[in-house]
Amino acid sequence: MATEELTKPSSLPPYPQMIMEAIDAVKEADGTNKSTISQYIVAKYGEFGAPHTELLNHHLNAMKDSSELLFVKNNYLRPTSDGPVKRGRGRPPKPREAPPAGGGVAPPRPRGRPKKDPNAPPAPKKAKISAAAATPPSGRPRGRPKKVQPLQNGVEA
């Protein structure tokens, strides 16, 4: 595509200016779509011919890439402080809590298990269970039974 095809008459304002003017004139809350911008420009400045669509697409993409316009749900918006907030990927961070009114900030808790208090009384000893009381009432020993050796020549090894 030659650059001669994409030129416009010099009496017209630049495309970015016409696009911003169209967005301001339409004043949609959700933004203005490409066809509405094109219709506004053609109605105000007259017919441009075939290169108008290509020029409009080029300038809208350039303005979107340079952050002059926001592109949300197929609509173009001017970036404002009260406009939609662009969020990054991933989970948003938790909001930080304000420090207490006293002004003092508690030091962070140390890592690991807390140290024992040397002045604390000793813990009571656990009562031992006798060996007879520990065996189950069925008379079997605890755990898995011993492995039985296979028979060799009819004699148990």
Rank of each mutant, 00 (worst) to 15 (best):
T36R: 09
T53Y: 09
R91H: 08
A157F: 15
A132D: 15
H52S: 04
P51R: 00
R144C: 03
R78D: 12
K115A: 15
M20W: 08
A25T: 05
A127Y: 13
A123Q: 11
R144K: 10
P107N: 01
K86E: 14
P100A: 00
H59K: 07
T32P: 01
A98M: 13
E5M: 15
L55N: 15
A25K: 07
P122L: 09
G112I: 02
S66Q: 07
G102V: 12
Q152W: 10
I37S: 08
E156M: 13
T7P: 08
K94W: 11
V42S: 12
F71A: 04
P99I: 02
E47R: 14
K128Q: 11
G88H: 05
L151W: 09
S81C: 06
R111C: 12
M1D: 12
M63I: 02
T3R: 04
V72S: 11
G139L: 03
Q39T: 10
S81K: 13
A25G: 04
G46T: 03
L151R: 12
N153R: 08
G90Y: 02
G103C: 01
K94R: 15
L6F: 11
T135K: 14
P110W: 02
T3W: 07
K125S: 07
E4P: 01
I19D: 05
G103V: 01
D117W: 01
N75V: 09
A98Q: 07
L70Q: 15
D65N: 15
D30K: 14
P150A: 07
A120G: 00
K128V: 10
K44S: 01
P99N: 02
K8A: 15
P9M: 09
A127K: 15
S35F: 04
V155N: 05
A127W: 09
G46I: 03
K94D: 09
A62N: 05
V85H: 10
A29M: 13
A50C: 10
R96A: 06
I41L: 06
G139P: 04
L77D: 02
P9Y: 08
D30Q: 13
P107W: 00
F71V: 02
M18K: 04
P9N: 14
K94L: 12
P93H: 13
I23G: 02
R87S: 12
I23P: 00
E97W: 13
A2T: 14
K34S: 09
P118K: 10
A29V: 14
H59P: 01
P107H: 00
S11C: 09
V155G: 06
T53H: 05
E4H: 11
P114M: 00
G49T: 07
D82S: 04
A132Y: 07
A106W: 05
P9G: 13
A133C: 06
G103Y: 01
V26C: 07
Q39D: 15
N153S: 07
Q17D: 11
G103H: 00
